[in-house]
Structures are given as C-alpha cells and as structure tokens.
Nucleic acid binder design. Structure first.
Length: 311
DNA sequence: TAGGCCATCTGGTCCT
DNA sequence: AGGACCAGATGGCCTA
C-alpha cells in the first residue's frame, strides 16, 4: 500500500498513517461510531448532516433536520426515534429510564422536569414548529418560536395552569442549551468538511481501500506539502534565474528529471535536477510559527510522533 | 486491554 | 443577548 504513494514517508507523517493504510473492508463504511442500542449518546452522524457528495444531500438533510428539529423542540431522546433515522441512531436515541442520554446530566434533569409537558407531543406532526427550511441555518430552528414553548396556549385541558415561572425558565434554559449544542455540532461539521476538502487536495492515496487521514495527519501532511511546494518554487526560481544569465545552458539531464522540482528531500542527494545550477540566497518564506507548536514537526525528517510510537 | 481517533456535550470567554 | 470559538470531559469504535 505504501508503495502506491510515497508521499507520506516523504512528508514525514508516515508514523501518523500507519493505521490509515488498512483496507477499507476492515473499516466499515464509516468511522462514525456504530452505536450500541443501549448507548443513549445522541450522535448526529456527520454523514447525515453532510452527505458524501454535494449533489445528494436530500435524504441526509431530512434526517438531520428531523434530529435538529426534535432536539430544538426539546423532545425526549426516546421520542426522537423517527422513521427518518437510521436504525442505529434510532436505537441510540435514549433508552434509559429518563429517556435522556446519560451524558447529559443537566439536560437529564431538565428533561425530567419537563417530561409532563412534552410527553404527548407528536414529533412528526411538527406542532408548534415551522418546517426546517435550511439545514445550514439551525438558528432558525433554535429561535423564532420553533420550540414548543406555547403550552400555555394549547387550550383547555393542557397543563398550562401548572406551569410555573420556574418551569418556563427551565424550559427556556434547555432550549438555549439545545440551540447551542446544535450550533456547535454544525460548527464541528463545517470544520470536518474543511478537513475533507483539505484531504482531497493533498497528495496521498485517495482510494476507497485506504483509510482516510486522521485530522492531525491531514494537517501535518498539508503543512509539509505546502513547504515542499515552496521549496519547489524556490528551485524553479533558481533555475529561471540561472537560465536568464547570458551564456547559460541547460545541463544534460534526462527529460524525466530535467524539470523535476519535487524538492525537499535534500535536493543534492536525491534530485539531480538543479545540481548544475548555482545556489541562490534562500527565499524567505518563513511564516511565523503557530502559537501552539506542540505538533510542529521538522520538515522531511523522522519526527518524534506526537503520540505513541507506531514502531 | 491500552491507545488512537472520533463525535458530542458543556461551560467559559470574547466579540458584535 | 446571541453567536463563534475553545478546551475539557465523556463515551464509543477500532486496532495492535
């Protein structure tokens, strides 16, 4: 597998890709957690929010919208089980007694306090909530009265009379928290989309049989790739400068390497490309290092892995 | 079983 | 007040 593309080794991130080169058949369709039905953690699968292709978002949008709608409606997790949801998501949608995820203690309390108010709502009816128009704008979901806060206006027989100001406050707090969660979820999805786009343009084996790069490997590979391209530009500039001199001539090199400017591996040792050209002062393309430099790796060396050694 | 990776929730901070 | 951003915590899946 590694022989299919040498860049990881060239770019000094092979230690981060050790586990990434397995056949995809061992990986399953995605690395999203397959949820144990006993696990109430309400995963909003990224694949549901962002379909694999830009052209085909409809089904995923439907399920995501349903999730967000239910979430922002303040429905119990157990009530989030919908025909739109994948089975694993439905199974994960809260199976504990309180109908809320164990990982949400505060919301658990809130849900418990609100159980009487939302128990009889029909998630599919969309009562009290306008249809979600745009998956990318959950603010519309989180605000504008989409939450079923209007129990007081549900007519006689409702529990409006029993509502106290404390209950309303608690419900509003829950609504705010759910809205914040949805925003954060969307933000992280956007971040992951950007990482996917980054993966698509950096050189590594883009094959369904190869596991996709981890986030950290993607960033390191991209950084080193950028530096490699910068070096290539510098080499080209050097060549152009030399050729512009009077009496300059191209050294006799095989065409395959004459313009190979894939530098960065120690040019003289690996690439004969510019061996015959004089050295120019190195160009300064030295961006200020990031503040948090913990993961900075020296270019084209064997960096000490940020995590456990893979060897 | 430990470690890596990931998604999500949550509370805090800063900004508009 | 609301939104963006961040980091810590938590829990699940997977691999060595």
């Amino acid at each position: 597998m590694m022989s299919a593309f040498p860049y990881p080794a060239m770019l000094g991130v092979q230690h981060l890709m050790g586990g990434d080169m397995r056949p995809a058949s061992q990986l399953g369709p995605a690395r999203r957690p397959d949820h144990d039905p006993t696990t109430p953690t309400p995963y909003y699968h990224r694949d549901a929010h962002h379909a694999q292709t830009r052209d085909d978002h409809t089904a995923a949008r439907d399920s995501m919208q349903q999730l967000l709608r239910n979430d922002l409606l303040g429905l119990n997790r157990s009530q989030m089980v919908s025909r739109d949801l994948p089975r694993d998501m439905a199974g994960a949608a809260g199976q504990d007694e309180a109908g809320v995820p164990r990982s949400l203690p505060s919301l658990q309390q809130l849900d418990h306090s609100m159980a009487g108010n939302i128990e009889n709502q029909d998630p599919a009816s969309g009562r009290g909530s306008p249809p979600v128009k745009e998956e990318r704008d959950p603010r519309d979901d989180g605000t504008g009265g989409s939450c079923s806060d209007d129990d007081t206006s549900r007519g006689p027989g409702s529990q409006a009379g029993a509502l106290t100001s404390t209950g309303k406050k608690v419900r509003q707090q829950k609504h705010v928290r759910l809205s914040i969660n949805a925003r954060e979820r969307r933000r992280m999805h956007d971040l992951n989309d950007a990482l996917d786009e980054l993966r698509s343009v950096i050189p590594y084996a883009h094959s369904p049989s190869v596991r996709k790069l981890s986030k950290i490997a993607t960033l390191l590979l991209a950084k080193n790739f950028i530096l490699m391209q910068s070096n290539a530009i510098e080499e080209l500039r050097r060549v152009v400068t030399y050729l512009n001199q009077p009496g300059a001539h191209l050294p006799h090199l095989p065409p395959s390497v004459a313009f190979d400017t894939g530098t960065g591996l120690g040019t003289e040792a690996v690439l004969p490309t510019t061996a015959g050209f004089p050295r120019l002062p190195p160009q300064s393309h030295n961006p200020s290092p990031p503040r948090n430099n913990k993961l900075q790796q020296p270019l084209f060396t064997d960096p000490s892995p940020p995590y456990k050694s893979q060897s």
